[in-house]
Design a binder for these strands. Sequence first.
DNA 1: CTGAAAGCGCTTACAG
DNA 2: CTGAAAGCGCTTACAG
Lengths: 363, 363
Amino acid sequence: MSSSSPRIPNPTASDADQTPARKRTKRVSMREVAEHSNVSVATVSMVLNNNPRISRATQARVRRSMDDLGYRPDRVAQSLSSTYTRLLAVMIPPLSHAFADTYFGEIISGIYDRAARLGHKIIIEQAKPKFIESGQHLELVERRFVDGLLCLGFIENYEFMHDLVERGQPVLSVNSHFVDLEVDSVVCDYTAGAEQAMNCLRQLGHKKVGMIIGGSKGVTTQDIMAVFKANTEELGTYDPSLIVDGRYSETGGAEAARQLIDKHPDVSAVFCSNDKMAMGAMHYMHQSGRKVPEDISVVGFDNLYVSQFLNPPLTTVHLPLYDLGDLACERIIQRIRGRREAVSELLPTHLILRESTAIAPGR
Amino acid sequence: MSSSSPRIPNPTASDADQTPARKRTKRVSMREVAEHSNVSVATVSMVLNNNPRISRATQARVRRSMDDLGYRPDRVAQSLSSTYTRLLAVMIPPLSHAFADTYFGEIISGIYDRAARLGHKIIIEQAKPKFIESGQHLELVERRFVDGLLCLGFIENYEFMHDLVERGQPVLSVNSHFVDLEVDSVVCDYTAGAEQAMNCLRQLGHKKVGMIIGGSKGVTTQDIMAVFKANTEELGTYDPSLIVDGRYSETGGAEAARQLIDKHPDVSAVFCSNDKMAMGAMHYMHQSGRKVPEDISVVGFDNLYVSQFLNPPLTTVHLPLYDLGDLACERIIQRIRGRREAVSELLPTHLILRESTAIAPGR
DNA sequence: CTGAAAGCGCTTACAG
DNA sequence: CTGAAAGCGCTTACAG
């Protein structure tokens, strides 16, 4: 320091020159804070963590040093010494527009806010086949990228959750659960929502109702179908071919609507198990010259933000997606902190009546 | 280990009991791999990092040990010893449905894929006022949560980027740039897109066109307005009151449409600077009994995925959002790795003609 | 081609 | 109430 012997530039000097690009405001470490306030790093650490064993006087002095020096604890070092990363992974399915899916978005919003309040950050990962095959879902926790995983929208290909559960890693499934896998879950009450939707259609005098579902395996889909079946059987119109798969997408919904109407031209209402398919169905009606709701009623499920702006605005079952995320986040953090018992929560749903439904034609 | 002296349970035993909940498959460290293959940890580290100085034989032996023991390098330790976290932050604005915004979603999709390919993960943060006020945007990099920030959709309140730039932290603004702040950016060619949209309307014989914008400060908004002004002046219909603010939202778009039509009932087309406002405008037309495109044409901007499913499907300017994210991610990583020169990229746009536009009425 | 050692910046018993 | 020391699991000169 005193004798600044100016070394002749050596071969690695150029390498050294690269680094300064990242020098930035030279990081201040705990050691420097300790020196500045004449205490040990242990004491600084304890002040940082509000350990009550430190006297008020020292507390104050150290805090001042921190401020004076602009100290920012290195969270990487903190994580290395402690058990947690305070990072959570949000897994979304390998669908092509998954990141732009408002359904996932609203849930993530709830997760994010709760995570922030509990001092956590979230990373997003898409469970593409290669990702799972190469075991990256396991690496996420085992290489300490995150403390736990929240899985959104997995109805099939959820074996990866099994891997995690098996190894005792914190995982939670949001809005889907399984018969063959015991994993923490937080889901909406699909049965109650479907009941209300079918009730509404019956009160409007609809006898022959079609249903567009997303796949047929999901437990929640099974729940909705059970309600649909019970109701249409009471109406005396039940027929398995009234149920068509719309693969949860807009295009799928449009195709399913065509298929349904071709086969059953006398259907006066269509109940869709999500808003995207309802949107596709309405799109098909519009393109094929049918008027909603005058000619045919459409009911959705989810109550996405956009659904109120459709033409006509969509009648749909409201799902508390934000709250779902909020609760899921709280529960996974409890699990991370040591909760042992499995958890499975159910959130209430309700119908939102808008303009895509009307009295059955000819009534 | 040999003499298992069964200690009497002490006060802290219960604490110790909590921890095992997180024991999981007892982590394997580099030291154990080293012992297992009779080399030093330095060698294991070098094998892990494919350092060519290690002989093929040792390479193989160590790799086997890794596999046998199920070794997973602790990325927290790796980050502590190296310069990078290999984490990127994606900042979104403090709008209420920002997480569920498909515009951001498509960009993030591009960011994610590129990041994954370059060995990075992404965390999402919303720049709420409190977040910025408490300096958390700085903590993000200075506490080593991430290596750099990608900012989406900031048109106002972008001072926080200044803080970062000032301290030499890697930041990049996606699809917005500023006159008073030099920051890396990747944006779409709004001028060219607007030209095409206006051209299309003129060819369809529209003389009196209204415009719905999102705020008036953004550089890109200025670009669009300049094109709008130039074109309507040529048509001899320019009037500042033909431009109304729709705040980039569906509701804002609906209100702006009402305002515009109340003041100028003879407007035959409306050009909106994003699809959400166009959707709101179409919603207002529908609710007020006007037919799109027979009575009035509507053009959007963004080409969101849903726009093709609207009734009628929306004519709009396509923005390469996925590519935008992809390129932005590549550029921020170059910056993190030491690039010094500022970067500002422009991506091409083009009009997508659908059914919300038609020949001007009475032509 | 490989190893011993220092260091990254924290936390946490342990001792006083 | 506070400090010295070990440890978290890696990487990286340095030496041989």
